[in-house]
Computed example of a mutant assay.
Amino acid sequence: MSLPQPVPPSWKDLGKSSNDLLGRDYHFSGTSLEVKTGTPSNVSFKVDGNRDSKSSFVSGNLEGKYTDKVHGLTFTQAWSTANALRTQIELDNQIAKGLKLETTTILHPEKSAKSVVLGAAYKQPGLHSRAVLDVFKGPTFTADTVLGRDGFLIGAEASYNVSEGRVTKYSAAAGFSAPEYAVTFHGLSNLSTFAASYYHRVSPDVEAGAKAVYDTKATSPGVALEVGTKAYVSLQGLFGLALDTQRLNDASPTGPAHKVGAQFVFEA
C-alpha cells in the first residue's frame, strides 16, 4: 500500500528554493530593505524598498493585508512608488475543498492603464493545477499543472490568446524534491531556453544552491551559471555577489558582467 501523496508545488514554485536563494534572498541588483509587522486583528503590513546599483533608482511598495481564516477570505491592498494601486481578493476552500479563487486588479491612474486578472487553483494529493485569465491583455488564458508522486515532479504550462485563437507560449519541467534537497529541470519559452537548478539544505542554519541556464537564441553562446549559499544569524542581513563565468577576466567584480548587492529583512 503506497503512502498518501502530498500536494506538489505549483508550476511557479518548481525550483523555488534555489531561485529564492539566488534571487530574492541572495540579492544582486542593489540594496533592499523589507519590514513586516502584524496585529492581533489579523491585519499585516509590509514595506519594502530597493535601490538599484546601476541606475541608483529607488523603488518601494506599501502593502496591507487582512485575513479572515474562518471564511477563507484574504484582502490585500498595495500602493507602489510608481503610483500603481493593486487590489487582490482571495477565497480559499469555500466552494470546494482544495479550490482557491482570486481576483487581482492593478490601476495606474497617471497612465490610465488597468489590469484585471481572474485566477483559480485546485490542489489535491499528487496534483496542483492553476488557471488564469488576463481580461484586458488578449484576453489571454494560461493554465498549468504539476503532478507529483514519491518526490518526483512533472509539470507543464501553456498560454492561449483568445482573440488570436492560438497558443502563444508553452513550457515543461521535471524534478525531484526531498526534505533536504531539490533538483529541477525547465524547458521554457517554447522550449528555447533550458535551465537546471539545485538546492541543498546542508544544515538547519546553512543552505546552498546553484542554477545553470542555456538560451538557444542568445547572441553569445554558453551556459550562464550562478551559485550561492546562505547562513542564518539573529539579524537577517544578506550580501550577494554574482559572477559571469564567461567573463571572469573582467578587471572589476562590479563591472557590467557581474552583480553585487545586499538585503536586510526585519519582521515583528
Rank of each mutant, 00 (worst) to 15 (best):
P139N: 12
G148C: 09
R130P: 00
D92E: 14
A131S: 14
K69Q: 13
T184S: 11
L133M: 11
Y181E: 04
V132W: 02
G148R: 06
K137W: 06
I154Q: 02
G187I: 11
N190C: 09
T140W: 03
A156C: 12
A156W: 07
A131Q: 05
Q94S: 11
L99G: 12
A143N: 14
A120M: 12
E157Y: 09
G98E: 13
H71N: 15
V117Y: 03
A195D: 00
T103C: 06
I89D: 05
A173S: 15
T103E: 08
Q124C: 07
T104C: 04
A96D: 13
D68E: 14
A78I: 00
T76W: 03
A196F: 06
V162E: 02
K169A: 13
L188H: 12
E164Y: 11
L73P: 04
K97E: 15
T104F: 00
G72L: 08
F75P: 01
L188I: 11
G138I: 08
F75L: 07
A96F: 12
W79Y: 15
K114W: 09
R166F: 08
A84S: 13
L85Y: 09
H128Q: 02
L147N: 05
P125E: 13
Y181C: 09
S163V: 01
T67W: 04
T142Y: 04
E164Q: 14
N83D: 02
S197F: 02
Y122R: 05
S80L: 01
G72R: 04
A131M: 09
F194E: 00
G98D: 14
G72P: 06
R86H: 12
V117Q: 11
A143P: 03
T142L: 04
S197V: 11
K100R: 13
A173M: 07
L133V: 15
